[in-house]
């Protein structure tokens, strides 16, 4: 995207947020929008890895949980201010990802996937078993809300605005990232790893860097979730959550920043509209993943858009 289009998109998006923040006054809708915002951050984070580095993580819930539990433990057990915990949990997520990514990302895509699948499972085990710190299976309560100046940002209008402002910033910065030296190298990598390396791109390192970045965004979503909801439990950070993130990316489309918003909305709203959904949730995700990847490997929105464009240029 060029600078001008980016400015327009950002302005339009900011306008939409401003209008929504005033128009939506129903508490349930506010909550729903908040969750969609958090899920959008998750989808965006994973999409930076899947769409641009062509790699996949099956354990991103661990980074989500690291953000949430990290800040939860520091603020409730150690009395830290959330703003002091904030940089620490983000750095921790980035560091864990880098340590896992650096060796595995030199190999084929299967290794990061397996490594992160293991990480996700271990993360969930730790959240569930480390009773004294995490509250075990029943979870953690009483995580303090965020405060800016004298204003408490909690679930409701203020929380919704906070989340969407963060989403707006994430979009803005990711968009800039994609249109930069690093972003071009990433997209080049996705097209042809050999040619990218021949152009002097240190492919192993670049993939580890973007994996780290993706983990940081995911932990940021966890941080917001913990402080807005005030309560966290291990079931929000399990294997199925990791799969939910993958599904959001697959629906939203690979390497599509605004598609993340669409993928996150679908995955958040589906269970709300279809109450029987929870029984079939896994089967539906499974089918979606298989069908989309077999027939539209660029993801649902990208695939449909490409198909439409094909029809248009033919007629």
């Amino acid at each position: 995207m060029t600078g001008k289009r980016r400015l327009w998109a950002t302005t339009a998006f900011a306008g939409a947020i401003a209008v929504a923040s005033m128009a939506v006054s129903n508490a349930y809708h506010q909550q729903l929008l908040t969750v969609i915002g958090i899920h959008t951050l998750l989808a965006l984070g994973l999409n930076m890895l899947m769409g641009y580095a062509g790699q996949i993580s099956l354990g991103h819930a661990a980074f989500y949980g690291l953000g949430a539990y990290g800040t939860g433990i520091l603020t409730t057990h150690y009395g830290w201010s959330p703003w002091a915990a904030f940089p620490l949990v983000l750095v921790a997520a980035g560091a864990v990802a880098y340590v896992i990514g650096r060796p595995t990302l030199k190999l084929s895509g299967y290794y990061l996937a397996m490594g992160t699948l293991g990480l996700g499972i271990i993360g969930h085990v730790i959240f569930r078993e480390w009773d004294s710190m995490t509250g075990g299976a029943s979870g953690m309560v009483g995580i303090p809300p965020l405060q800016v100046g004298g204003t408490v940002l909690s679930l409701g209008r203020s929380g919704m605005i906070l989340v969407w402002v963060v989403v707006l910033m994430a979009f803005f910065f990711c968009d800039r990232l994609v249109d930069s030296r690093i972003g071009r190298a990433l997209r080049a990598l996705g097209d042809s790893q050999g040619a990218a390396a021949a152009c002097g791109v240190d492919t192993g390192r670049l993939k580890a860097v973007i994996f780290s970045f993706s983990a940081v965004l995911t932990a940021l979503a966890g941080f917001l979730y913990a402080h807005l909801v005030g309560f966290i439990s291990p079931s929000s950070f399990d294997f199925l959550m990791s799969i939910r993130m993958v599904t959001m990316v697959v629906i939203g489309g690979m390497a599509s920043i605004y598609g993340s918003l669409f993928g996150a909305s679908v995955i958040t709203l589906l269970p709300e509209w279809l109450h029987v959904f929870s029984d079939y949730e896994m089967m539906v995700y499974g089918l979606v993943l298989m069908l989309v990847m077999i027939f539209l490997p660029q993801g649902l929105t990208r695939g449909v858009l490409d198909a439409l464009e094909g029809v248009k240029s033919e007629s």
């Binding site: 899947m50 062509g54 790699q55 996949i56 099956l58 084929s108 895509g109 299967y110 996937a113 199925l240 799969i243 993958v246 697959v250 029984d279 079939y280 949730e281 896994m282 089967m283 539906v284 995700y285 499974g286 089918l287 979606v288 993943l289 298989m290 990847m293 077999i294 490997p297």
Partner: peptide, 30 residues
């Protein structure tokens, strides 16, 4: 699920087999 894939890259095959995995798990749960 595997043979129809036109460009068998790792990420595509991973997502497909993961999809098969949770589909089977969901089915087994039912």
């Amino acid at each position: 699920a595997i043979r129809p894939v036109k460009k068998p890259e790792p990420i595509t095959l991973i997502i497909i087999t993961v999809g098969a995995s949770i589909f089977l798990r969901g089915l087994a749960m039912l």
